[in-house]
Design a binder for these strands. Structure first.
Lengths: 156, 156
DNA sequence: GTTAATGCAAACGTTTTGCACAGGC
DNA sequence: GCCTGTGCAAAACGTTTGCATTAAC
């Protein structure tokens, strides 16, 4: 997965200006292995930038996605983003429905899939959803303490 | 895949009233094997019902989805619907990016996937996208005639 | 100094809601 | 006749756009 520095470097190489906000975004995604919605990002950024507007966040997320430093997937709840994985290393993800951390799966099923006669395969989606170890334990604890595990970071 | 009659029957069994619009919806999904967006459905229904409103279409799509007669998947362009497949017969789909027809894949990769230690798998998504035989040919023809293959029906 | 990024406001498309009326059961 | 489904209007929501100001290069 791209590091904070790699994200900044790529943006700079492409002629984008490295503003303070973009540094913070790069850091957020470089250090966070889960998926974040535009709203999550906005709320996080708000803590640091008081007069922040939605549109800047959206614009930056879009630019960063177009640039390829962020990848987005469509959940039922909407589109979410995380730092791109290394393209050379094709893989899929286990995604925790609670904390949204991702765990890589090396196995890619597309090669084992035989398409009917004339069908030309161009892309595929393989995602496995469930609950990671931590969140299962947290859920058990939660039942007693009603504390919530909302951190969205540090795996993959 | 559920037939028009099965859709109507299920809705009736669940205490829903079978209005003329709902009959038409059931027929639309019972006979159409591709994915349709709410807008597609609305536009189709408009031909038959002049004073039709968006909200009724949305309400019915939602009700039918909650009831389980429709399944929805999230494309980049938004949410789309089609009649539910038989639950007993778990399978995945090849989806044509042009005409959105679906072709079943018996192969399910989830059993071949080993999750890390404590991860509890609850659901998965495996979809293969590409272009079906017809649309590849149509594309070649299209280059000359610029005719478009917009029908969204009759396979799976 | 030039050009791109930002904040603001307003627009846009999609989906949801409340309510009165029409229609299935 | 009861209660659900419908149409209408308006609101909510997420996202995008145009423009003047600000800041990176």
């Amino acid at each position: 997965m791209l590091s904070t520095e790699q994200i900044i470097e790529t943006m700079s190489e492409q002629g984008l200006r490295i503003t303070d906000q973009r540094k913070t975004l790069a850091k957020l995604f470089g250090e966070n292995k889960g998926y974040l919605s535009a709203k999550d990002v906005y709320e996080f950024m708000c803590k640091k930038y008081s007069g922040l507007s939605f549109d800047t966040v959206y614009r930056n997320l879009r630019v960063m996605h177009e640039l390829g430093v962020l990848e987005q997937i469509v959940f039922e709840e909407g589109i979410k983003f995380k730092a791109s994985c290394n393209q050379d290393d094709h893989h899929h993800h286990l995604i925790c429905l609670q904390c949204q951390k991702t765990y890589p799966i090396r196995f890619c099923p597309v090669d084992l899939t035989d398409a009917p006669d004339g069908f030309k395969v161009v892309k595929h989606k393989f995602e496995v959803f469930g609950y990671c170890k931590d969140c299962q334990q947290a859920d058990t604890i939660e039942a007693k303490t009603s504390e919530r595990s909302d951190n969205k970071s540090e795996v993959s």
